[in-house]
């Protein structure tokens, strides 16, 4: 059956096979763990970044919010194994995610610490004064007005630094450093 679980993950089973495999996973806790581990390994290898902590919760929420088909005809169609396989696979994926999160929390002793606010003094490097770079060309004095803010703001939206750092680089657009350079 383990092989079937693996084949199911790779999408190599036909409708009937998928249905049997999913039934087996539902019944057998051992198989269920196998299913979760396969997903965990796959995620690790694909280098998925850490997901939001409430990911599984959201998957389940979405599933619950899915419109339910009340018409008898639709119900009949839904009861076909192939139709059923997807929602089950999705809910299992949700459970798998919970298992994955639980595992990763247990495996890393650092995990509980990071969830709470880790207050630590700024790293030494951060505390060291950052010397201004001397431009290769002589810089003229002070920037005349605060009008430059709009330009900086417009620029920041198109700088790749926003993709790497999120909004932190916007700090440049509002910094009061300007006054400091008015020497």
């Amino acid at each position: 059956m383990r092989e079937n679980v693996s084949a199911l993950m790779d999408g190599e089973l036909d409708d009937a096979g998928a249905q049997r495999a999913l039934e087996a996973i539902k019944r057998d806790p051992q198989l269920h763990r196998t299913w979760s581990s396969y997903h965990l390994i796959g995620d690790a290898l694909r280098r998925h970044p850490g997901l939001a902590a409430n990911y599984a919760e959201r998957v389940l929420e979405r599933l619950q919010a899915e419109p339910m088909m009340m018409a008898p005809g639709a119900l009949r169609r839904q009861s076909r194994p192939g139709r059923l396989a997807m929602p089950i696979a999705a809910s299992l994926a949700g459970v798998g995610m919970v298992a994955w999160l639980a595992l990763s929390m247990n495996d890393q002793s650092a995990a509980p610490a990071r969830a709470g606010a880790v207050a630590s003094p700024p790293p030494v490097a951060a505390a060291a004064p950052v010397q201004p770079a001397t431009p290769a060309v002589p810089a003229s004095a002070v920037l005349p007005s605060s009008a430059i803010k709009e330009y900086l703001f417009a620029h920041q939206g198109y700088s790749p630094s926003s993709s790497i750092q999120g909004m932190a680089p916007y700090m440049r657009t509002v910094t009061e450093k300007r006054q400091a350079t008015a020497q």
Binding site: P49, Q131, I164, T175, A180
Partner: peptide, 26 residues
């Protein structure tokens, strides 16, 4: 990985921006 994390993770924190001898906390 850094780019994916910046877009997908939920986070909140305090950071220091330094430029020259000027620094600001946000």
């Amino acid at each position: 990985r850094i780019v994916a994390a910046a877009q997908k993770l939920n986070y909140t924190g305090t950071f220091i921006y330094q430029s020259g001898n000027h620094s600001e906390t946000s």
